[in-house]
Computed example of a mutant assay.
Amino acid sequence: MDGGKNVKGRKRHIVVDSMELLLFVIVHAANHYDSKAAFKVVESLKYRFPRLVKIIADAGYRGVLVDNIKISFGWILQVVVRKDSTKFEVLPKRWIVERTFFWFESYRTF
């Protein structure tokens, strides 16, 4: 159970490129923190994508993860944070992953 989001079951961490092609997926129990599980995802990219330079993530991945990825792999982890406004706002590049998650949820069987 993820207490912050009240999610029972599983969390999915995905990596997509700028053309929305799925590069990597990890599914784990919902009681793991996003930032700790993300290191495993990024670690699995090390030898698969040698030209990778920058990773864009949402606010759930901020903190020491940014420094750990820079030190361990030499990649830049840019965290895109929402502004505290009540109106909807499209955030740069983050919508690519959000749309991919929408496709997963729309075609999921229960």
Rank of each mutant, 00 (worst) to 15 (best):
F88M: 13
P50W: 08
S85C: 13
L22N: 00
L21I: 13
A38S: 14
A38G: 06
K8Y: 13
F102G: 12
K36S: 12
K40C: 05
Y47Q: 07
A59C: 06
K54P: 00
Q78L: 12
M1E: 03
R48H: 11
S35Q: 05
Y107N: 10
G60Q: 01
V90Q: 07
D2L: 04
H28T: 15
A29K: 13
A38K: 02
V16R: 03
Y61D: 01
L77N: 03
Y61A: 02
V25H: 02
N31I: 07
V97R: 06
L23D: 01
D34I: 10
V7K: 11
E89M: 14
D84R: 15
K5F: 08
K11H: 05
T109S: 12
L22G: 04
V27M: 05
R82G: 09
D17G: 07
W103D: 02
S106L: 01
G74K: 12
P50V: 14
I69Y: 03
G63Y: 00
P50H: 13
A38N: 07
I56L: 08
G74W: 12
N68S: 11
E98T: 10
A59S: 14
N68T: 05
H32T: 07
H13E: 04
V81I: 15
R10M: 06
D34N: 06
I69E: 02
N31A: 09
S35H: 12
V7G: 07
V64S: 04
L23G: 03
I76V: 06
R51N: 14
P92Q: 11
V66G: 02
A29R: 13
I55F: 00
S106V: 01
W103Q: 04
I96M: 01
I69V: 15
F24N: 12
F102I: 03
L77W: 02
L91A: 09
K54N: 05
K36H: 07
V7I: 15
G63S: 00
K54H: 06
